[in-house]
Amino acid sequence: MVYKSILPLAVAFCCASLQNGFAQSKPQPLVKEIYTADPSAHVFNGKIYIYPSHDIEANVAEDDEGGHFNMRDYHVFSMDDINAPAKDHGVALDVKDIPWAGRQLWAPDAAYKNGTYYLYFPVKDKKDVFRIGVATSKSPTGPFKPAANPIAGSYSIDPAVFTDKDGKAYMYFGGIWGGQLQRWHTGKYDASLKTDLGKGHENEPALSAKVARMKDNMQAFDEAPKDVQLLDENGTPLLAKDADRRFFEGAWMHRLGDKYYFSYSTGDTHLLAYAVGDSPYGPFTYKGVIMKPVSGWTTHHSIIEFKGKWYIFYHDVELSGKTHLRNIKVRELVREKDGSIQTIEP
């Protein structure tokens, strides 16, 4: 999520025709009964499950730290096929049931291992500091039971858990501005850093997402979080001033062959970008833009393979026209023969 004051909405959607039969002149919202955003999609047992944020009209004044994104619970949705309706399985987790939580249930993710489903979520603790929690269930749709405490060593927002072919799992996380990543840049929390590191840091390497390998129980880090290094074509770290390419929030990882695709939102420039590496830890070399700005302020996505094709789940504000009341969508992700991703004009 991004947390800046609302800017004018992006231009209206242009018509697009996608390859391989998944063609819509304008992808329709998958859910219309409630507002949903930040969709983390996964394939479990041959079916698509979506774990989004649940936007509400909380009547909270807008601010640069995203106070108006005051979500309180999660719903889980399932789809039998890519063109099937999204079924709402109801509330999977409520903020009132998380012992250590204060407010603001932001973008979640999910994973599965050894008969248990895991829901990962960022929420502010009672001191208004974002931590990442975990909840478990024997069903992909919940209800999920939260652990008594946040994951030790976790902070900021936007957890995304990737399980590699060898069974090892990694959590990617972090978000600048309201996501508080900048407050941890020295290793200790500094509440004075409201948005970024400020003047004088523009020519320094940009703040980076974090990655940590998970323990086998999927409920704790097996190591201290590391920086996700993003490089340009010359092997030089992307700089803080490079707003069209540097990381801001919304990390996602997927693998194609032997290559690891780290994708993310550039935040205040509204692009979904990607970089490619040879390891889950990177470093990752910037390759381009997956999707240009959607209507609305925030940009957040997930990428899955389903029945031999790749799809991107994302959100915009078609239903409400309001930045904090969003709706999730899906469309095909088209690759070139070399594995590069065609840029989508939403």
Rank of each mutant, 00 (worst) to 15 (best):
275 A>W: 07
298 T>M: 06
294 V>C: 07
295 S>M: 15
306 F>V: 10
286 Y>K: 06
300 H>S: 07
259 K>T: 08
304 I>T: 09
268 D>Y: 14
291 M>K: 14
271 L>G: 01
255 R>N: 13
252 W>N: 15
242 D>L: 05
285 T>P: 00
254 H>Y: 15
306 F>Q: 04
255 R>H: 04
294 V>R: 08
299 T>D: 03
294 V>K: 07
243 A>M: 12
299 T>N: 13
283 P>D: 08
270 H>C: 03
291 M>R: 12
297 W>F: 14
284 F>M: 05
240 A>G: 02
262 F>Y: 15
301 H>C: 08
241 K>V: 13
284 F>R: 02
282 G>D: 05
242 D>G: 05
277 G>Y: 11
269 T>W: 09
252 W>M: 09
241 K>Q: 11
245 R>D: 00
306 F>E: 04
268 D>K: 09
274 Y>F: 12
253 M>F: 12
271 L>N: 05
272 L>Q: 11
281 Y>H: 06
296 G>A: 09
251 A>K: 00
294 V>P: 00
282 G>V: 07
301 H>R: 04
243 A>P: 00
243 A>Y: 14
289 V>G: 01
298 T>N: 12
277 G>C: 11
297 W>A: 11
262 F>S: 02
296 G>C: 09
301 H>Y: 05
241 K>W: 06
266 T>L: 02
248 F>N: 13
304 I>W: 06
258 D>R: 09
280 P>V: 04
299 T>C: 04
250 G>D: 07
282 G>Q: 06
288 G>P: 11
248 F>K: 01
258 D>M: 02
300 H>G: 02
292 K>P: 01
252 W>L: 00
251 A>S: 15
260 Y>C: 04
261 Y>D: 06
257 G>L: 11
271 L>A: 01
241 K>S: 13
251 A>F: 01
290 I>G: 03
270 H>R: 15
249 E>I: 10
275 A>F: 09
263 S>K: 00
246 R>T: 13
259 K>I: 03
299 T>V: 14
301 H>T: 11
258 D>Q: 14
281 Y>N: 04
263 S>F: 03
295 S>Q: 15
285 T>K: 13
252 W>T: 15
261 Y>G: 07
